[in-house]
Simulated scan of single mutants.
Amino acid sequence: MSARFACFVTGTDTGVGKSLVSAALLHLLVEGGLGAVGMKPVAAGAVLVDGRLINDDVEQLAAAGNLSLPAALRAPYILEAAAAPHIAAAREGVTISMEHLLDCYHQLAASAETVVVEGVGGFCVPLSDVADTADLAQQLGLPVILVVGMRLGCLSHALLTAEAIRTRGLHLAGWVANLIEPDMDYLPENIAALVERLRAPLLGELPALGPQPSAAHASSYLNAGLVTGWPLEKNTTR
């Protein structure tokens, strides 16, 4: 078995809503009657609870999926320091292996109909001295969904990220506008500028949803059918 659909979710920066969008996509896939799992290859920023490192992004993805697959595959590297992965890993004596990340993904893809892989930080964040998140995305070869944090400066960030994605030979499957600056001036004009220039479908516009938005709520603003290429109908038989 191999995944029918998988994607790589990246963002214009850290804190722009990648985890929320990833969880929302998982929610839609589950509602569509599919076995779905989220993967966070590298998670930086965790607290130790009962001898286990807990990361909010990893927990959010786990809650949105519907398959009980090993945590060691879903989140191969959880680092305690809330810093760039290569810095956090060096501080903790951890070596992030690209081969291990790819192996974990392929094991998930062999056990799930759909896999949503969430990157860390922006698209080119370093993972080690020799690799970054863009290298991981390129090795996975998955269609990419770009989360754009809508705020002043987002146009350049989004266009540069899209250029980097295409330079790696990857397909930009679509993008999501996430309003992280609720009072952003000229929001419609900024979205229109990106629609014209990104050359990828706008999959949804997320308004400001409060401090702890749910995946279900966020999913109501997305159209996953545009990503997968086939409609997702709610299925109550699973």
Rank of each mutant, 00 (worst) to 15 (best):
R166A: 05
G121N: 07
L140Y: 05
I145A: 01
P143K: 02
V148Y: 00
L34A: 11
H106W: 13
Q212S: 14
Q139M: 13
K18V: 08
A131G: 01
S22F: 00
D135K: 08
Q139I: 03
S97F: 08
A81V: 08
E189F: 11
V94D: 10
E196Q: 15
V49L: 02
L48T: 01
A36D: 02
A46L: 03
L67T: 01
L206V: 12
A164R: 05
P213N: 07
G149C: 05
T167S: 13
I191W: 03
Y186F: 15
P143V: 08
A215E: 09
L179G: 06
R91Y: 06
E99Q: 14
G121V: 06
E31W: 00
L172F: 03
D183G: 15
G11S: 12
N55Q: 01
N223A: 14
P207L: 09
V116Q: 09
A75D: 07
L61H: 10
K18C: 07
V148G: 02
E205N: 11
D13S: 15
I180L: 06
W230N: 04
C7D: 08
S19K: 00
G122V: 00
T14L: 08
K40I: 12
L203S: 12
G32W: 06
I78N: 02
T236V: 15
L108C: 10
P143H: 07
A64Y: 01
E181T: 06
T95Y: 09
P85H: 04
K40R: 11
L206N: 01
G33I: 02
G121I: 05
A173G: 00
E163K: 12
V130Q: 14
A3N: 11
L34R: 02
L172H: 09
L29V: 11
G17T: 10
T114K: 14
L26C: 00
E99F: 13
A192H: 12
A177E: 03
R197G: 02
A3E: 11
D13V: 03
M1R: 09
L209I: 12
P70F: 07
Q60M: 15
T10G: 10
R74A: 12
N235Q: 14
V227C: 09
T114W: 05
L73T: 12
E233K: 14
C104W: 10
T228R: 06
V47E: 12
G122K: 06
L159W: 00
L202Q: 05
R74L: 05
L206T: 09
P85Q: 10
E80R: 15
D132E: 06
A216T: 10
V42S: 03
A173N: 11
A3S: 13
E80N: 15
A6K: 03
W230K: 06
A83W: 08
G17Q: 09
E59I: 13
G33S: 05
P76V: 00
F5P: 00
